[in-house]
Nucleic acid binder design. Structure first.
Lengths: 145, 145
DNA sequence: ATTATACCCCGGTTTTTTACTGGGGTTTGT
DNA sequence: ACAAACCCCAGTAAAAAACCGGGGTATAAT
């Protein structure tokens, strides 16, 4: 199960926004894209999706950009995934049209596995990842010395 | 997270093999494909992969076919997935080449989520699914009456 | 031995999804 | 007014998933 570029890019962008959340100043697509080495036109689409999903707010015009729609600790990663991949993707619904019993039995197990994964993605917030990042940076400095 | 055709087909086939495991008689691709409504040429590929992965054994020639390589209760679903999608797919390794700290932090969380899912897939065996199936069939009969 | 059956190998094609790009419009601060 | 940014839509390229076909090989039955 590979993490899609899409999700990785989105989370990277959100991490930037989380880091600058205190400042209140919006970040521009260009900036984020440059910082995280993401194709900016592509990132634009992702941010648009995140905006429609209520995860970020945008400010148009000069000095515009994006800010998180709510505090970093109130945004679990699961929200990001369900926004991008669709909620039905995060937790696939077992269609009652269930062609055969076998298939629905398999789907149920699969669903349980997905829910287990989602539980993990639910418990980590952007804030958590930000902290992990700074902690890691500290470690790298220590190691350097 | 959608279940791939590939994995669904494979598990369906393995369920058939599990069901006829007692008999000792091999099942043919054609039979399984017809029973579960799977394109037989495609199923052939999958069974070949499962064979190379040591999950099934094949008997060539007339009266040939496939049998499970070991008892149904000794085959957790995770084995099927890792065989088909590759072990590195089931548990993505975080490459130490880690471009940036941010990306590796994200990968770690993703990996934890995958492991949670794998734990579920580890605990269910083909046997379990078979039993689920027969149980479900009983229920359907009750409901019919 | 011959023959029919059924797996084996390998490669190609089609379809779908993912990742990415481009053009032209609209809002907004200076 | 004008430049900086987002907005919308549509297309393309590349990769993965799903599927198909041909010719070969082992094996059981006759």
């Amino acid at each position: 199960m590979e993490l899609s570029c899409k999700s990785e890019y989105a989370i990277l962008a959100l991490l930037e926004l989380a880091a600058s959340y205190q400042s209140g100043e919006p970040l521009q697509i260009r900036q984020i894209a440059a910082q995280q080495d993401i194709p900016d036109r592509y990132l634009e689409q992702l941010l648009a999706t995140l905006r429609r999903g209520g995860l970020v707010k945008s400010q148009r015009g000069a000095k515009g950009g994006y800010v998180l729609a709510r505090e970093p600790w109130k945004i679990p990663l699961l929200d990001v995934f369900s926004c991008l991949e669709g909620l039905d993707a995060a937790v696939p619904e077992l269609d009652s049209s269930a062609k055969t019993i076998e298939r629905s039995v398999i789907q149920e197990v699969w669903q349980e596995a997905c829910q287990a994964a989602n539980l993990v993605l639910q418990k980590y917030t952007l804030q958590d990842l930000c902290e992990q990042r700074t902690a890691r940076r500290q470690m790298d400095i220590m190691y350097y010395i």
